[in-house]
Write a protein that binds this DNA or RNA. Structure first.
Lengths: 202, 202
DNA sequence: CCGATAGTGGAGCGTCTGCTCTACTATGGG
DNA sequence: CCCATAGTAGAGCAGACGCTCCACTATCGG
């Protein structure tokens, strides 16, 4: 049997999360990570293979957590109030996550696409990443279908706007600052309603 | 009399703009800039002093252009339709700029705050940068004042949301892709209306 | 023709980065 | 006891980066 671990990979991920939330992806270097986590360079590379994989894995955990929360909220709202309520619930999901688990929300909000999917992420992790993307795309398409009986790009774009871009614009700054958004939530609901009323292009 | 210029500093700025629009700030290096512009390393540093100053100067030119356009649109809308129309016009200004000068809009949309204001920007340029910031802040405060007779942070926040964050969420992706947004403009107007109806917190 | 001036060119310095490589270490099965 | 195994440690490599430095060059007033 091999030598036992002295550094839990989860502890390395936790250190990475801290640094990402505090300073963002740019200043997160291998050296900063080893200093914060106590693990050596060799240990980090033995466990993850690349720094990009560390970042991608940290993101992946939190994104799964978010999508689960969002899916539940959407299904519940869909059953109780129909597709419009479901879109509202999906848009509100980041605020809910911030209520339930602020560090998780802060991590997701502190990274951009390019930070997560680089050339050096381990193939297995990259596959999971793309699977999550597909899951979100599926949810968006389902919502468009339920709203207007349409699954075309124009319809999905409107839903994406409501569920992805508007929350990013209205909620992310507050979350990044470590607050659970309050007033912005009401504004978001109003904006989503207005955009849905516009509907997709014919 | 000195030796005449063989490389117009404006040509260096133009090359920087091209690279920023094509690939963003991250990949813009001194070497890439010298290769694209034809000017040597020495010339770039003689003219600007630092790479950050090149980026800041390029941004500054375009931001001035944008703020002028926006100010005119706001004043005209204020006179013709009152403060709500003025906010709508301010929010729509990025789309107008994209119509009038697509490269200008693409440049502004391809940079973030941290890309522009670094420690190495020449003091004179940094001062101008902050002056532009103050000018925008003034416009936002004036709009809040005209709408609700309030200049407090909560009121200004609502206007900022309408004029800065919502346009970023709804228009920037299209502009970044080199298109003049069409449908998003109507959605933006609807969203701005809905957020204004919410009003600021008491 | 000359010297002051402003611009040009590019070698290369110091630093930082992600990552590799190798020697080393703790474990349990045989 | 000893070896296969998996994990640990950290020195150091190759390359990229922003920037400095200095020799050089074209201009024009005198």
């Amino acid at each position: 049997m091999p030598r036992p671990r002295v550094h839990d990979p989860d502890a390395i991920l936790a250190a990475a999360e801290e640094l990402l939330v505090e300073r963002g992806r740019g200043p997160l270097t291998v050296r900063a990570l080893t200093e914060r986590s106590g693990a050596s360079n060799g240990t980090v590379y033995h466990a993850f293979g690349s720094l990009e994989t560390v970042v991608a894995t940290a993101w992946l955990r939190r994104a799964r957590q978010f999508l689960t929360l969002q899916r539940d909220a959407v299904e519940q709202a869909m059953a109780a109030g129909g597709p419009r309520r479901a879109v509202q619930a999906a848009a509100d999901a980041p605020a809910r996550l911030a209520e339930a688990d602020l560090p998780a929300a802060r991590l997701l909000v502190s990274l951009q696409r390019d930070d997560v999917l680089g050339d050096a992420v381990a193939p297995a992790v990259a596959v999971d990443l793309r699977a999550l993307d597909a899951a979100l795309a599926g949810t968006l398409r389902d919502l468009a279908q339920a709203l207007w009986d349409r699954g075309d790009a124009a319809a999905v774009d409107v839903v994406t706007l409501c569920v992805v871009r508007l929350p990013a614009a209205l909620l992310f700054d507050a979350i990044r600052a470590g607050q659970v958004p309050a007033h912005p939530r009401a504004q978001l609901a109003a904006a989503v309603g207005a955009v849905l009323d516009c509907g997709p292009t014919p």
